[in-house]
Write a protein that binds this DNA or RNA. Structure first.
Lengths: 195, 195
DNA sequence: CGCATTTTTGATACACGTCAATCTCCGTGG
DNA sequence: CCACGGAGATTGACGTGTATCAAAAATGCG
């Protein structure tokens, strides 16, 4: 069970105040806090559903700003949960970029990301999973996927379906599991995309 | 077939420069133009797909800002199409609201709208259509729905499925068709939601 | 009035959901 | 060191919600 706990500030307190956080809750909707730029990793944003449960709302990946609504409302609109190891730093960064332009860039980025997420919820199941992989793969051709259940929440499929699709992609050599200590990783892969 | 044509500026050139546009194309991705605030109506935003076709990306309803990325890039990111009669006015409005705060409000609004759209693409078909109806119903309890095909694009269902669901909602008296010239309207309804 | 567009409806197919069992991986404690 | 237990992942058998294909009806526009 995931419990909400403060962000780990122990690592890299040196340059530019980057914060490390392990997979797990980052902040909760309606709580107070600041905005962040996600330096690396994957974060899911959730609405609170009618029965208090988390309802997937959006996704943030490296470069995205999360929680900037606190600058306006003083509280977070969504809950944020790290789906992989993440690095974040406070936003705005206080560098020379003019505030208005920086905000505008964030708005444009948020809209494009939203379109990406919408696309992950349409079409055939395998294409949705591939779409997510394309979104998450890094420049070296590797990817650390979220848990099957989180992929299912993002794509509006069932985790059994996700499991079948990922195993199929492995058999097709599109996903090549990374080995850690000689054992088959279930979430880290080298990606070998056809297109 | 929908062809792109300029916005009709003939109506209400008086106060605050509000523009009327009939159902149809508003602007095209990559073209130049300004940002707009949608005063009334429903607009779909589309990405250009791999084969040049329109791929649904997001939805804008009354109060939303569309095309604000032109302020940054000088060109639209998405294509915009009116799904119902719309009224729009140029944005920013040039009133007293500070630019930064106004932008921030737009960003927060865009994020909430994106979460709404994501929710319209998850769960059972009937719930998705009901979700859209809830989003579009006005304060008087009436709604003018987009065409079945557009609802299908938004919810990632087929128009035949949408047709069946709407007919079912009519039979359940949740949607009460408005009569115009004595004929059964297929898109205007009085809404009688259970919850 | 006539024709193109949109909507409705029916019959059938299949992709994904559901339920259940098993397996792997890992941390914990005896 | 190994037994134990829990979380996550895999796999199989079967059910069902929606897609697909086809045809007709209703609507709206010139």
């Amino acid at each position: 069970m995931r419990l909400f706990s403060p962000v780990d500030r122990s690592k890299s307190p040196s340059a530019r105040q980057t914060l490390n956080c392990t997979s797990g809750p980052i902040y909760r909707a309606a709580s107070e806090g600041q905005a962040w730029r996600l330096r690396s990793g994957v974060v899911r944003l959730d609405n609170i559903g009618p029965k208090g449960e988390a309802v997937f709302a959006s996704l943030a990946i490296a470069g995205d700003i999360i929680g900037c609504e606190t600058l306006l409302f003083g509280a977070y609109t969504f809950s944020a949960t790290a789906l992989t190891q993440c690095e974040m730093s406070p936003w705005p960064e206080g560098d020379s970029v003019p505030a208005g332009e920086s905000l505008l860039a964030s708005l444009a980025q948020a809209q494009r990301r939203a379109a990406d997420v919408v696309a992950l919820r349409g079409g055939q199941a395998a294409d949705r999973v591939l779409g997510l992989i394309r979104l998450l793969v890094d420049s070296t051709g590797q990817v650390v996927l979220p848990m099957r259940q989180d992929i299912a929440d993002i794509t509006d499929l069932r985790f059994e379906t996700i499991s079948r699709i990922i195993k199929q992609l492995e058999r097709m050599q599109i996903l090549l599991p990374l080995r850690m200590d000689g054992v088959h990783a279930t979430r880290g892969f080298r990606v070998n995309l056809p297109a």
